[in-house]
């Protein structure tokens, strides 16, 4: 639309008064943006009509404003109600965060529990091991105490059987208790034999050699069979498992009893 056409035909006035249809309005607005003097003319028109209106203002009863403010408060609270659904989202996000934190905390705790469990298992294993150790130590103690008791018995007599030329470095310590009819030996310094041979102990009773038992290769303190009226203790090397009579040529040590 031409600028002078707008000015001459009172179109600007009609625009201000809101008489134009949509397409006319759009064209006028485009022209106003384009021509600064149109814009200026529009501003003059508008301010004139505004002044006219202000001069001819009529006082409005206060109730109208009060009612309006109440209405927009209600409308506003409705509008605020919308963000409340956002609040829901907000709370949801808090809940989600809380859930996430809980989840992470749970995983952390689970890991902690697992590692604690492992530690506990290890501790339990250690405990079992310690218990076993304790048990075996205790057994050893009982055993040692028994030996100690037996050795220290006032009725116990100590005999040392020194090895002969067949067993130059070997020594057996024996404790004979005639009151309690028991005999113990310490085989710690007895040389090791091969798998096919065992040491066997014999008691000499009136010239007859009576079997006191095969010396166990394991262990260092052994209980042997007590034989009444034994004159001497003798040890021979015999085939593994022992022999029913001693192989005299294989006598490694002997001791006469008092």
């Amino acid at each position: 639309m031409d600028k002078s056409q707008i000015l001459d035909n009172g179109i600007l006035e009609q625009y201000v008064l809101g008489e134009l249809n949509m397409s006319e309005k759009v064209r006028i607005e485009a022209a106003i943006r384009r021509y600064p003097d149109l814009k200026k003319a529009l501003e003059e028109l508008e301010s004139s009509l505004e002044e006219l209106a202000l001069e001819n203002a009529i006082e409005v009863p206060d109730e109208v404003k009060i009612e309006l403010l109440n209405q927009i408060k209600r409308a506003h609270s409705d509008i605020i109600a919308l963000p409340q659904s956002n609040n829901k989202g907000f709370y949801l996000s808090i809940a989600a965060s809380a859930a996430a934190i809980l989840c992470i905390a749970s995983i952390y705790l689970l890991v902690q529990v697992n590692s604690t469990n492992k530690a506990l298992e290890i501790a339990q294993e250690n405990n079992i091991e310690l218990n076993d150790n304790f048990k075996s130590l205790n057994e050893q103690l009982v055993e040692t105490s028994k030996w100690f008791e037996a050795i220290n018995d006032p009725d116990s007599e100590k005999y040392i059987l020194k090895g002969n030329s067949l067993m130059p470095n070997g020594i057996i310590i024996s404790y004979v208790n005639n009151a309690k009819k028991s005999i113990l030996i310490n085989t710690e310094q007895l040389p090791k034999l091969d798998a096919e041979h065992d040491y066997q102990m014999w008691a000499d009773v009136d010239g007859a050699m009576i079997d006191m038992g095969v010396i166990n290769k394991e262990g260092s303190m052994l209980v042997m069979n007590y034989i009444d009226n034994a004159k001497s203790l003798n040890i021979t090397i015999e085939p593994a498992g022992g022999n029913d009579h001693p192989t005299v040529s294989q006598l490694v040590t002997n001791v006469y009893l008092r």
Partner: peptide, 17 residues
């Protein structure tokens, strides 16, 4: 809302007229 109140005070009389 305060701006609305002020706008009302400015223009309500003219518009009511």
């Amino acid at each position: 809302e305060n701006a609305f109140s002020a706008v009302y005070d400015n223009y309500s009389g003219a518009l009511y007229g």
